[in-house]
Design a protein around this nucleic acid. Structure first.
Lengths: 164, 164
DNA sequence: ATAATTTTGAAAATGAATTTCATTTCCTTG
DNA sequence: CAAGGAAATGAAATTCATTTTCAAAATTAT
C-alpha cells in the first residue's frame, strides 16, 4: 500500500558531533570483508552520517539527512545498512513507546537505560549499577537467566517541567 | 492490504481461572453509563472472557477464545472492547519486544515489572520496591518528572534453563 | 576485462493496528 | 410499548512502519 514511511512523529534526535569515526569505519570494513560482503559507496556514506549522530535516530530520519546530499541513495539502502551496522555491533536498535525503531551509535559503553520525555521527545541515557545489581537479584530469585533487559522512564524532562 | 491479523507469534498466555469478576463488571457498567455509552451483549461476553484471563493476552488471541463460543462476535469488537477496558482501568496495555499489544487484567495492584522468557514466551510479573526507589532517585537527579516506566528482563525462565 | 556475486532502489508486500460505513442494537422519552 | 436518536457492530478497507522482491548496477576476485 505504500513504499516507505511518509514521515510522521519522531520529534527530536541528536545531531552531528565531532568524534573519531575512522576506527569504527575500519571495524565495519573488516566485518564486511569477513562476511563476504562488499564495501560500497552508499554504505560508507550512510555509516559516516550515522556515526556522526548523537543520540537516537530512526532509519527514516537518517535517510532524510543522507538524502539531502545524496539524492540517489534510497531509503531501503539506509534501512539495510542500519541492520548491517547493528549486526556488526556499531549500532544498537531501540524501540520506545512510540513503536518506532531507533538506532544509536554503540560505542562500547556499558549497558545503559533511558529517560524519555513525553513533552519534547528528548531521550537521555543513564547508568545505575545499583539497579543492575537488584535486577540480577530478582532474576536469581526466579531462576531466570537474563540475556538482556530494558528499562525506560517516561515523563517530563527538566526543561519541559520548567516551561510548563 | 489485510483486514486483521491472520495469526502468528504469541506463544503462551495464561488461561482462565476462578476469580470474582462481578465487581469488575459492575465497574465497567458504571464507566459505560457515565460516559454515555451503551452496555451490549458483546461487551459483556468479551469482558467476562477477558477478566477470567490470567496473564497477558493479545486482542487476536482473546478474539479466538471468544469466537469459539460466539461466532458472531468479530475481531473489531474485541479490539475496541479492550481499548474500552483499558480506558476504564480494568486492563493494562503492554507491548514487549515482539511488538504485539497485550492486555492484562488490572486488579488494582501495585505497579509491577516483567520477566519475559525468550524460550517459551512465559511472562512473569515481579515487584521490587528497592528498584522503584532507585528509579525515583535517578529521576530526581535529572530533574525528571516520571509519569510511567517500564522494566523488562529478557532471558530464559527456570523451566527453559533446566530443559536446555 | 570478465565472470560471479552482492548491492541497490523502486515498488510491492506484509502484518498489526485502526478507521470507515452501512446496518443493527440499545436506550430513552413520549 | 412504540419511535426515534445515538451508539455499537462487523466486514472490509486503510494506515503505516517494516521487510521483501526483482531487475539493473556495482563490486571483487580472477
Amino acid at each position: 500500500m505504500q513504499g516507505r514511511p511518509k514521515g510522521r512523529k519522531s520529534p527530536l534526535q541528536g545531531s552531528s558531533a565531532s568524534h573519531s569515526i575512522s576506527g569504527e569505519k575500519e571495524r565495519l570494513r573488516l566485518f564486511i570483508k569477513k562476511a563476504g560482503l562488499k564495501s560500497t559507496r552508499q554504505r560508507d556514506i550512510i555509516a559516516t552520517e550515522f556515526l556522526k549522530t548523537i543520540g537516537h535516530i530512526t532509519a527514516e530520519d537518517l535517510y532524510k539527512k543522507v538524502n539531502r546530499k545524496h539524492k540517489e541513495i534510497g531509503f531501503t539502502t539506509v534501512y539495510r545498512t542500519m541492520k548491517l551496522l547493528s549486526k556488526c555491533g556499531l549500532a544498537s536498535e531501540r524501540v520506545f513507546a512510540d513503536n518506532l525503531t531507533r538506532y544509536e551509535p554503540a560505542r562500547g559503553e556499558e549497558h545503559h537505560d533511558h529517560l524519555i520525555c513525553i513533552g519534547c521527545g528528548e531521550i537521555t541515557e543513564f547508568e545505575n549499577p545499583k539497579i543492575e545489581r537488584l535486577q540480577g537479584e530478582v532474576a536469581k530469585e526466579f531462576g531466570f537467566n537474563t540475556i538482556s533487559h530494558k528499562m525506560e522512564l517516561y515523563g517530563y524532562c527538566r526543561r519541559c517541567v520548567e516551561n510548563a
